[in-house]
Amino acid sequence: MSFIIGVFSTALFVIIDHLTIIYNRIWLAILCNTKYRKSFIRFSISYLYKIKVDDKYLLVKGHRVKDQFQPVGGVFKRFKSSNAIFKKLKILDDEYMPIDSISVDDLRVLVPAPNVLKFLKWYNSKSDREVNPEREFKEELLETGILPKKNFKNLKYTLVNEIESKIKFSDHFQCHEILKAEIYEIDLSKKQISELRKIMSQESSSYIWLDAQQIRKKGYSKDSNIRISDTSTWIL
């Protein structure tokens, strides 16, 4: 009997989850074809790493906002083969962030509201875009020398969460936007945990270790006020 109840509960959860996704998509379609139909929606689509050791999470100093700490990770990139569909959907490069050799082809884009669902369908197809989340891990932790390459050459990771915000107005960019992120957790070996504990015991201006409460408080305490990105809570 308990087995039947367990199967029924699991099936019910899956059904509710699918219905929620369908409802959210229907509501998004309605908004994009009514309230926002003449607007562009800014998208920023990234991958973030949940790196947790001894109840503390590793955050690194950001490239764009120099005094801000954030999870290891970055924005996915699209390939040149996506140019045709981007042209068809009239998708523009993000005008709110400077485009340079580092940010070129980032999935920070402006999408005409009526084409938002088509853009998301393209993204979910995983065609003509980056799907491997290792690039920023290597750039932020290995190429900077924070972690030794030899012990982190082969990464094993698991997708543990996917986050998509509702359309909201960004005070910073003064436009409507949707933020998406894939959250990955590294399956750490004993040697890798040992290496992470080593850097945890060292002070650095390039990274910081915080517990969940400190991250939820965005780094604020009576003794210090560390600037933490809004996306840092996504890895908890």
Results as ranks from 00 to 15, higher is better:
Val131Lys: 07
Pro112Asn: 01
Arg108Ser: 04
Ser101Glu: 13
Pro114Cys: 09
Val131Thr: 15
Pro112Ser: 06
Asn132Glu: 12
Ser127Ile: 13
Asp94Lys: 03
Tyr96Met: 12
Val131Arg: 02
Leu117Gln: 04
Pro112Thr: 06
Tyr123Val: 06
Asp100Ala: 10
Ser103Met: 09
Arg129Pro: 00
Phe119Ile: 03
Ala113Phe: 08
Met97Pro: 04
Ser101Asn: 14
Asp105Gln: 12
Glu130His: 01
Ile102Trp: 09
Ser103Glu: 07
Asp93Phe: 13
Val116Trp: 08
Arg129Leu: 08
Glu95Cys: 12
Val111Ile: 13
Leu110Asn: 04
Glu95Leu: 14
Lys121Gln: 11
Lys118Pro: 07
Tyr96Leu: 13
Pro112Leu: 11
Ser125Val: 07
Glu130Gly: 05
Leu117Gly: 02
Tyr96Gln: 08
Lys118Ala: 14
Val109Phe: 00
Asp93Met: 10
Pro98Arg: 10
Asp128Ile: 07
Asn124Thr: 13
Lys118Glu: 13
Asn132Ile: 13
Glu130Met: 09
Asp100Phe: 10
Ser127Pro: 04
Ile91Phe: 02
Phe119Val: 03
Ser103Tyr: 08
Leu120Thr: 04
Arg108Leu: 03
Asp106Leu: 10
Phe119Ala: 04
Asp94Thr: 00
Met97Arg: 11
Ser101Ile: 13
Pro98Asp: 08
Ser103Gln: 08
Asp106Val: 12
Pro114Leu: 10
Asp100Cys: 08
Ser125Asn: 00
Ile102Leu: 14
Trp122Lys: 02
Trp122Asn: 02
Leu107Gly: 02
Leu120Tyr: 04
Ile91Ala: 03
